[in-house]
C-alpha cells in the first residue's frame, strides 16, 4: 500500500500580473491536495499570489537539444497527420528562457489552440519568440488546477508575517563588526 502518488508540477506566481513559473513537483492523490502540498512546500515565505498545478504526465516537454535532433521530425505525428478537422482545445505554453542561475524552470508565455500536444508544440514554436528557448512545455488547460482569487488570503497571507524566515532579519554581520571594533579599541 506504499505506492507513490502521481506527481504534479507546481507553478507559482509571485505577484499579480507576473507570469506563473514552474518551481518543482509534489506528489498528491488529487489536484486539490497538490495545491495544498504546493503551498506548504513552495510558499513558506512571503511572495506568493497564486499557484497552479498540473499532473506531470499531462505535460509534453521538449528541450532545444531534442528539437534540434529532429527527434520529432522522424515521428510521423510531428510531420503530418495533424487533422485540420480535429476538434481543438486550449493548451498552455511554457518556456525555459535563460541559462542564468535561478530557482525557477519554465515560464508561462501564453496559450494556443491545438488538436494534440504535438500540434500545440508546433503552434507554440510558430507563434511565440523561439530564439533563446531552452525547453518548451505544452499542457492542456483542462489539466491545470488553479488556486482561486478567494484562496489568496487564507493560503498565502500567513507566510507574509513570518519575517524571521528571512536572513535579512538577522544582524549578525553588523554585530560581528561591532564586536571586532570594540576589541580593537581595547587592545
Amino acid at each position: 500500500m506504499d505506492t507513490q502518488w502521481p506527481r504534479y508540477e507546481v507553478f507559482k506566481q509571485d505577484r499579480p500580473g507576473e507570469p506563473h513559473e514552474s518551481i518543482g513537483t509534489v506528489h498528491a492523490v488529487d489536484a486539490e491536495m497538490a495545491l495544498q502540498n504546493g503551498r506548504d512546500l513552495f510558499a513558506r515565505r512571503p511572495k506568493c499570489h497564486s499557484l497552479w498545478v498540473a499532473r506531470a504526465d499531462a505535460i509534453t516537454s521538449k528541450t532545444a537539444e531534442q528539437l534540434a535532433a529532429k527527434e520529432l521530425a522522424t515521428d510521423n505525428s510531428w510531420q503530418a497527420d495533424i487533422d485540420p478537422q480535429a476538434p481543438t482545445e486550449t493548451y498552455l505554453v511554457f518556456q525555459k528562457q535563460t541559462e542564468r542561475r535561478g530557482m525557477t524552470f519554465t515560464t508561462h508565455v501564453g496559450e494556443v489552440e491545438a488538436s494534440s500536444p504535438v500540434h500545440a508544440l508546433q503552434q507554440a514554436i510558430a507563434i511565440f519568440p523561439a530564439e533563446q528557448v531552452f525547453v518548451w512545455w505544452v499542457c492542456p488547460a483542462s489539466a491545470v488546477t488553479r488556486s482561486e482569487e478567494a484562496d489568496t488570503l487564507p493560503m498565502f497571507a500567513p507566510a507574509q508575517d513570518k519575517l524571521y524566515r528571512l536572513p535579512n532579519q538577522y544582524r549578525t554581520v553588523f554585530t560581528m563588526q561591532k564586536i571586532k571594533r570594540g576589541k580593537d579599541v581595547i587592545e
Partner: peptide, 8 residues
C-alpha cells in the same frame, strides 16, 4: 556553461 535538462 550550458545546463543539462531532463530529456537531453
Amino acid at each position: 556553461g550550458e545546463k543539462i535538462e531532463p530529456g537531453d
